[in-house]
Amino acid sequence: MEFASLTIEMYFFLFTIAIVAGFLDTLAGGGGLLTLPALMMTGMPPLAALATNKLQSSMGAATASVMMLRGRRVRWHQVKYLMLSAFIGSVIGTVILQFIDAQMLTVIIPVVITCIGIYFLITPMVDEANKPVRVSSAGYKKFVVPLIGFYDGILGPGTGSFFTLAGRALRGQKFLEATAIAKTLNFASNIASLLVFLFAGHVVWLLGMLMMVGQFIGAWLGSHCLFKIPVSYLRYLVVFMCFAMLIKYVAT
Protein backbone atom coordinates (compact mmCIF):
# COMPACT_ATOMS: atom_id res chain seq x y z
CA MET A 1 0.00 0.00 0.00
CA GLU A 2 1.30 3.49 -0.86
CA PHE A 3 0.91 6.58 1.27
CA ALA A 4 2.83 9.55 -0.10
CA SER A 5 1.39 12.62 1.64
CA LEU A 6 3.98 12.87 4.43
CA THR A 7 6.53 15.64 4.83
CA ILE A 8 10.22 15.10 5.54
CA GLU A 9 9.61 16.39 9.06
CA MET A 10 6.93 13.75 9.65
CA TYR A 11 9.20 10.97 8.42
CA PHE A 12 11.91 12.17 10.80
CA PHE A 13 9.38 12.36 13.64
CA LEU A 14 8.18 8.79 13.04
CA PHE A 15 11.76 7.51 12.76
CA THR A 16 12.60 9.11 16.10
CA ILE A 17 9.43 7.75 17.71
CA ALA A 18 10.40 4.26 16.49
CA ILE A 19 13.82 4.54 18.15
CA VAL A 20 12.28 5.72 21.42
CA ALA A 21 9.56 3.04 21.25
CA GLY A 22 12.05 0.25 20.55
CA PHE A 23 14.18 1.36 23.50
CA LEU A 24 11.30 1.80 25.94
CA ASP A 25 9.49 -1.34 24.79
CA THR A 26 12.54 -3.46 25.56
CA LEU A 27 12.90 -1.94 29.00
CA ALA A 28 9.41 -1.15 30.22
CA GLY A 29 6.96 -2.27 27.52
CA GLY A 30 4.37 -0.09 25.87
CA GLY A 31 6.19 0.92 22.70
CA GLY A 32 3.00 0.46 20.72
CA LEU A 33 1.41 3.19 22.84
CA LEU A 34 3.79 5.55 21.06
CA THR A 35 4.02 4.22 17.52
CA LEU A 36 0.33 3.58 16.84
CA PRO A 37 -0.87 7.09 17.83
CA ALA A 38 2.07 8.53 15.88
CA LEU A 39 1.02 6.63 12.75
CA MET A 40 -2.60 7.66 13.20
CA MET A 41 -1.49 11.30 13.33
CA THR A 42 -0.40 10.99 9.69
CA GLY A 43 -4.02 10.55 8.62
CA MET A 44 -3.54 7.08 7.13
CA PRO A 45 -6.49 4.64 7.29
CA PRO A 46 -6.78 2.67 10.57
CA LEU A 47 -5.96 -0.71 9.03
CA ALA A 48 -2.90 0.78 7.32
CA ALA A 49 -1.75 2.30 10.62
CA LEU A 50 -2.19 -1.04 12.42
CA ALA A 51 -0.46 -2.97 9.63
CA THR A 52 2.49 -0.58 9.37
CA ASN A 53 2.79 -0.60 13.14
CA LYS A 54 3.11 -4.39 13.03
CA LEU A 55 5.82 -4.20 10.37
CA GLN A 56 8.00 -1.81 12.35
CA SER A 57 7.31 -3.33 15.78
CA SER A 58 8.25 -6.80 14.50
CA MET A 59 11.83 -5.60 14.07
CA GLY A 60 12.01 -4.38 17.65
CA ALA A 61 10.45 -7.59 18.97
CA ALA A 62 12.79 -9.73 16.85
CA THR A 63 15.87 -7.84 18.04
CA ALA A 64 14.86 -8.09 21.69
CA SER A 65 14.02 -11.81 21.32
CA VAL A 66 17.36 -12.64 19.72
CA MET A 67 19.17 -10.74 22.47
CA MET A 68 17.22 -12.65 25.15
CA LEU A 69 17.94 -16.03 23.53
CA ARG A 70 21.60 -15.29 22.81
CA GLY A 71 22.10 -13.97 26.32
CA ARG A 72 20.39 -17.12 27.70
CA ARG A 73 17.87 -15.06 29.60
CA VAL A 74 15.39 -17.54 28.17
CA ARG A 75 15.84 -20.97 26.55
CA TRP A 76 14.26 -22.08 23.29
CA HIS A 77 12.72 -25.23 24.80
CA GLN A 78 10.90 -23.01 27.33
CA VAL A 79 9.11 -20.89 24.76
CA LYS A 80 8.73 -22.72 21.44
CA TYR A 81 5.24 -24.07 22.11
CA LEU A 82 4.14 -20.89 23.86
CA MET A 83 5.28 -18.93 20.81
CA LEU A 84 3.20 -21.20 18.59
CA SER A 85 0.14 -20.56 20.78
CA ALA A 86 0.71 -16.80 20.63
CA PHE A 87 1.13 -17.05 16.85
CA ILE A 88 -2.19 -18.89 16.37
CA GLY A 89 -4.12 -16.50 18.62
CA SER A 90 -2.71 -13.48 16.79
CA VAL A 91 -3.60 -14.86 13.36
CA ILE A 92 -7.21 -15.33 14.44
CA GLY A 93 -7.39 -11.81 15.88
CA THR A 94 -5.92 -10.17 12.79
CA VAL A 95 -8.20 -12.07 10.42
CA ILE A 96 -11.26 -10.93 12.41
CA LEU A 97 -9.93 -7.36 12.34
CA GLN A 98 -10.20 -7.30 8.54
CA PHE A 99 -13.99 -7.47 8.83
CA ILE A 100 -14.41 -4.60 11.33
CA ASP A 101 -15.69 -1.33 9.85
CA ALA A 102 -12.90 1.24 9.42
CA GLN A 103 -15.03 4.05 10.86
CA MET A 104 -15.50 2.05 14.03
CA LEU A 105 -11.74 1.60 14.29
CA THR A 106 -11.16 5.37 14.27
CA VAL A 107 -13.14 5.49 17.52
CA ILE A 108 -12.13 2.15 19.03
CA ILE A 109 -8.36 2.57 18.66
CA PRO A 110 -8.01 5.86 20.62
CA VAL A 111 -10.37 4.59 23.35
CA VAL A 112 -8.47 1.32 23.79
CA ILE A 113 -5.07 3.07 23.72
CA THR A 114 -6.30 5.46 26.42
CA CYS A 115 -7.42 2.53 28.58
CA ILE A 116 -4.09 0.74 28.09
CA GLY A 117 -2.25 3.96 28.92
CA ILE A 118 -4.15 4.26 32.19
CA TYR A 119 -3.39 0.60 32.90
CA PHE A 120 0.31 1.32 32.40
CA LEU A 121 0.09 4.28 34.72
CA ILE A 122 -1.51 2.49 37.67
CA THR A 123 -0.19 -1.09 37.37
CA PRO A 124 3.16 -1.83 39.07
CA MET A 125 5.37 -4.10 36.96
CA VAL A 126 8.60 -4.46 38.94
CA ASP A 127 7.49 -6.76 41.73
CA GLU A 128 9.91 -9.48 42.77
CA ALA A 129 7.69 -11.05 45.46
CA ASN A 130 7.15 -14.76 44.93
CA LYS A 131 3.86 -15.59 43.21
CA PRO A 132 1.98 -18.90 43.42
CA VAL A 133 1.28 -20.91 40.27
CA ARG A 134 -2.42 -20.42 39.53
CA VAL A 135 -2.71 -21.93 36.05
CA SER A 136 -1.21 -25.20 34.82
CA SER A 137 1.39 -25.19 32.07
CA ALA A 138 -1.13 -26.76 29.66
CA GLY A 139 -3.88 -24.29 30.53
CA TYR A 140 -1.51 -21.37 30.15
CA LYS A 141 -0.37 -22.59 26.73
CA LYS A 142 -3.84 -23.45 25.42
CA PHE A 143 -5.89 -20.53 26.73
CA VAL A 144 -4.00 -17.62 28.29
CA VAL A 145 -1.23 -17.14 25.72
CA PRO A 146 -3.54 -17.46 22.66
CA LEU A 147 -5.96 -14.96 24.23
CA ILE A 148 -3.21 -12.36 24.65
CA GLY A 149 -2.01 -13.19 21.14
CA PHE A 150 -5.57 -12.60 19.90
CA TYR A 151 -5.51 -9.12 21.46
CA ASP A 152 -2.19 -8.41 19.76
CA GLY A 153 -3.66 -9.43 16.42
CA ILE A 154 -6.75 -7.29 16.77
CA LEU A 155 -5.02 -4.20 18.20
CA GLY A 156 -1.69 -4.67 19.99
CA PRO A 157 -0.43 -1.90 22.31
CA GLY A 158 0.60 -3.23 25.72
CA THR A 159 0.82 -6.88 24.61
CA GLY A 160 4.34 -7.39 25.94
CA SER A 161 3.31 -6.16 29.36
CA PHE A 162 0.24 -8.40 29.34
CA PHE A 163 2.49 -11.41 28.64
CA THR A 164 4.77 -10.33 31.49
CA LEU A 165 1.87 -9.81 33.88
CA ALA A 166 0.35 -13.18 32.97
CA GLY A 167 3.65 -14.97 33.49
CA ARG A 168 4.05 -13.37 36.91
CA ALA A 169 0.47 -13.70 38.13
CA LEU A 170 -0.50 -17.06 36.64
CA ARG A 171 2.74 -19.03 36.29
CA GLY A 172 4.68 -17.64 39.25
CA GLN A 173 7.61 -16.49 37.08
CA LYS A 174 10.20 -14.11 38.49
CA PHE A 175 9.91 -10.62 37.02
CA LEU A 176 13.07 -10.83 34.91
CA GLU A 177 12.17 -14.31 33.65
CA ALA A 178 8.63 -13.19 32.78
CA THR A 179 10.00 -10.13 30.96
CA ALA A 180 12.43 -12.18 28.88
CA ILE A 181 9.80 -14.78 27.95
CA ALA A 182 7.33 -12.02 27.07
CA LYS A 183 9.74 -10.66 24.44
CA THR A 184 9.69 -13.95 22.53
CA LEU A 185 5.92 -14.36 22.76
CA ASN A 186 5.39 -10.79 21.61
CA PHE A 187 7.64 -11.47 18.63
CA ALA A 188 5.57 -14.53 17.66
CA SER A 189 2.28 -12.65 17.88
CA ASN A 190 3.72 -9.69 15.97
CA ILE A 191 4.97 -11.83 13.10
CA ALA A 192 1.67 -13.71 12.88
CA SER A 193 -0.33 -10.49 12.65
CA LEU A 194 2.12 -9.01 10.14
CA LEU A 195 1.75 -12.01 7.82
CA VAL A 196 -2.02 -11.54 7.70
CA PHE A 197 -1.64 -7.81 7.04
CA LEU A 198 0.86 -8.51 4.26
CA PHE A 199 -1.58 -10.89 2.63
CA ALA A 200 -4.34 -8.25 2.91
CA GLY A 201 -2.06 -5.56 1.41
CA HIS A 202 -2.42 -2.90 4.12
CA VAL A 203 1.27 -2.23 4.90
CA VAL A 204 2.79 1.18 3.99
CA TRP A 205 6.21 -0.13 3.05
CA LEU A 206 8.46 2.92 2.88
CA LEU A 207 7.33 4.27 6.21
CA GLY A 208 7.28 0.86 7.84
CA MET A 209 10.82 0.04 6.76
CA LEU A 210 12.10 3.41 7.95
CA MET A 211 10.54 2.77 11.36
CA MET A 212 11.96 -0.76 11.37
CA VAL A 213 15.45 0.74 11.30
CA GLY A 214 14.49 2.97 14.21
CA GLN A 215 13.04 0.00 16.12
CA PHE A 216 16.24 -1.99 15.58
CA ILE A 217 18.37 0.84 16.93
CA GLY A 218 16.10 1.38 19.93
CA ALA A 219 15.71 -2.32 20.77
CA TRP A 220 19.47 -2.92 20.45
CA LEU A 221 20.17 -0.07 22.85
CA GLY A 222 17.42 -1.21 25.22
CA SER A 223 18.62 -4.82 25.26
CA HIS A 224 22.04 -3.66 26.43
CA CYS A 225 20.45 -1.66 29.24
CA LEU A 226 17.94 -4.33 30.34
CA PHE A 227 18.40 -5.48 33.94
CA LYS A 228 20.87 -2.62 34.52
CA ILE A 229 18.69 0.43 35.12
CA PRO A 230 15.39 1.01 36.97
CA VAL A 231 12.47 1.11 34.56
CA SER A 232 9.51 2.30 36.64
CA TYR A 233 9.94 5.96 35.74
CA LEU A 234 10.12 5.09 32.03
CA ARG A 235 6.50 3.98 32.19
CA TYR A 236 5.44 7.50 33.11
CA LEU A 237 7.31 8.77 30.05
CA VAL A 238 5.52 6.24 27.83
CA VAL A 239 2.09 7.28 29.15
CA PHE A 240 2.86 11.00 28.90
CA MET A 241 3.99 10.72 25.27
CA CYS A 242 1.06 8.45 24.42
CA PHE A 243 -1.54 10.86 25.78
CA ALA A 244 0.18 13.85 24.17
CA MET A 245 -0.06 12.20 20.73
CA LEU A 246 -3.66 11.10 21.31
CA ILE A 247 -4.63 14.66 22.20
CA LYS A 248 -2.91 15.88 19.05
CA TYR A 249 -4.70 13.22 16.97
CA VAL A 250 -8.14 14.06 18.39
CA ALA A 251 -7.53 17.79 17.96
CA THR A 252 -6.73 17.49 14.23
Score class of each variant (00 low, 15 high):
S5V: 12
E9K: 13
F12L: 15
T16D: 00
T16I: 10
I17Q: 01
A18P: 03
V20K: 00
L24Q: 03
D25W: 02
G30M: 03
L33E: 02
L34C: 06
L34N: 00
T35S: 10
T35A: 02
A38P: 06
L39A: 07
M40Y: 04
M41P: 00
M44E: 04
M44Y: 01
L47F: 11
S57P: 03
S57H: 08
S57W: 03
S57N: 14
S58Y: 05
S58K: 05
G60L: 04
G60E: 04
T63I: 14
M68F: 15
L69F: 12
G71C: 09
R72W: 08
R72E: 15
R72Y: 09
R73D: 13
V74N: 02
R75G: 01
R75H: 14
W76L: 14
H77G: 00
M83V: 03
S85H: 04
S85N: 06
S85T: 08
A86P: 01
I92S: 10
F99Y: 15
D101P: 04
Q103F: 06
Q103P: 00
I113M: 10
I118L: 15
F120W: 08
I122L: 12
I122G: 04
M125S: 13
E128Y: 14
A129Y: 10
N130P: 12
P132M: 12
R134W: 12
A138M: 14
Y140Q: 02
K141G: 09
K141E: 13
F143H: 10
V145H: 04
P146F: 07
P146L: 05
L147N: 01
D152T: 09
D152P: 07
G153C: 06
I154D: 01
L155N: 07
P157S: 09
F162E: 06
F163V: 02
F163K: 05
F163A: 06
T164E: 01
A166H: 01
A169Y: 13
R171I: 06
A180C: 11
T184A: 13
L185H: 04
N186K: 03
A188H: 05
S189E: 08
I191M: 14
S193Y: 03
L195K: 04
V196S: 08
L198V: 10
F199H: 14
A200N: 13
H202G: 02
H202S: 12
L206E: 12
M209E: 00
M211V: 09
M211F: 08
F216W: 13
A219F: 06
F227S: 14
V231T: 15
L234F: 11
L234Q: 10
L237W: 10
L237E: 04
L237K: 02
V238T: 07
V238Y: 07
V239M: 07
V239H: 02
L246K: 04
Y249R: 12
V250N: 11
